[in-house]
Design a protein around this nucleic acid. Structure first.
Lengths: 252, 252
DNA sequence: AAATTTCATTTTCTCGACAATCTCTATTTT
DNA sequence: AAAATAGAGATTGTCGAGAAAATGAAATTT
């Protein structure tokens, strides 16, 4: 290998750091990408906001070159808009765009779900059971508190939906879904900051919805699982004022 | 508007240039992105090849900063791999990866096709008819010549498949599909340069396949159109030695 | 007065330079 | 002889500077 001891230790340290999603020697460009991305998705940066290099330089304490690299990556994803000779801006929010995104997100999720139900093994089932258990606890906590959404609920929710489709057999299908999910997330967050947190979930019993989805998934009822997942996501869309007609089932 | 005459002329010139997909004042970063991307997809750059900045600088006559921006964008797409403190390389080709990509590509294409058939109007139908007409001519020319694939055939083929799903109603669904398509294209091209051009299409009558797809689409037979499209793409996969078991229909 | 032009300021995009890190070969050690 | 080390050379990732272009406000023309 031609690898000395110091290098080996480095490999081990880095491997452990990667497990925690915190690279020890993260490049400035990576760092800029991660931070700006999080700020855009969380809503800390407003849609339509110009992203001037000088401003970003002082805020993140990162030079112009890595900042530009990060912004270019984000523009490929669609979170940032590159404006030929006019710099970058946070992509504006647009309800038609949201409907469009949701169509893609829901359709891809349904495909992945159907595949996952057809291909999933026992280990996958156990992940689903674990995620369902945690989700139930968090849904109950949410209902009991009557307050806004906790970080713990967010991550349980993310894992819940990720677990269902994990066995779909295509890394790329999951990646496409994740990308669209992140874009949608930004719309969801913006609606939370606008509206009163207590009314975020309206009259929905999200716990009920999650339980139904989990049951359908574990009983391998593909048709039902897809339908429930679709309406689950659709409720978010219509709450934000999107046009549900563009999405719904095509063969009634 | 505060816009002088020179600026107005500029706008008009730029608008016309955009129609031709050749921006007049394309930035170096954009240029680098476009050129390197084309070279990777066409196979002009080998999979696994290291992309050293100094080398790229001399080849494309572009400075290091725009080159790095382009490589970062390409790494987001998956065509390039970024190797923490070790620069960039062209993503290696891997048959399992190709199967994975194909699953995603075919599943998304089927979803888009079903939506397109359900939503398409007369104008869409006319686009399908036009694309089918051109495709037939090119397929016949291909069969008659017995030679390799022409650029004209390539673009007719691209438009043929694009037309079918154009009415799916989601820009994002189409974009996801395009991205996966480009990734798959690299695999297809690499197989052409390896094998004899005359045997590229094996015993397939691609013209027949295209005609059948077009018929199913125009008669709005969603089930059949999806099935034909799937097997159409699957034939490419199996010709390249991919594992077809990973893809096929899940409910036999 | 409204529209156009001018011009100073701001901002983007690109380049060359440099420190930190990696790579590869030759040498030393076990 | 095989493995570890050391060091020269090459490469990456980052910064600051500067040319080119956009922006916005004041001056000019219609």
């Amino acid at each position: 290998m031609g690898m000395n001891l110091a290098a080996l230790v480095e490999v081990i340290v880095t491997a452990r750091a990667n497990n925690l999603n915190v690279s020890t020697h993260e490049s400035m460009a990576q760092r800029a990408y991660r931070l700006i991305r999080a700020d855009i998705i969380s809503g800390a940066r407003d849609p339509g906001e110009r992203l001037r290099i000088e401003m970003l330089k002082t805020v993140y304490d990162i030079g112009p070159t890595p900042l530009r690299e990060a912004l270019q990556k984000l523009s490929t994803e669609g979170l940032v808009l590159a404006l030929e000779k006019r710099g970058f801006m946070v992509s504006p929010l647009d309800l038609d765009e949201f409907s469009d995104l949701n169509i893609a997100r829901i359709e891809i999720e349904k495909v992945a779900l159907a595949r996952s139900l057809a291909l999933g093994d026992n280990q996958w089932e156990s992940r689903v059971v674990a995620a369902t258990y945690l989700m139930k606890k968090e849904d109950e906590a949410l209902l009991a508190s009557g307050a806004g959404v906790y970080d713990a609920w967010e991550s349980a929710n993310a894992e819940f939906h990720a677990a269902m489709i994990a066995a779909c057999g295509s890394k790329w299908l999951l990646q496409m879904r994740d990308q669209l999910q992140d874009m949608c997330e930004r719309y969801r967050r913006s609606s939370i900051s606008q509206s009163n947190k207590k009314t975020v979930n309206g009259n929905r019993d999200v716990g009920e919805e999650h339980a139904a989805i989990s049951d359908a998934v574990l009983s391998r009822n593909s048709e039902l699982a897809c339908q429930l997942t679709e309406s689950h996501y659709m409720k978010t869309l219509s709450r934000l004022g999107g046009n549900p007609n563009l999405v719904g089932d095509l063969q009634p």
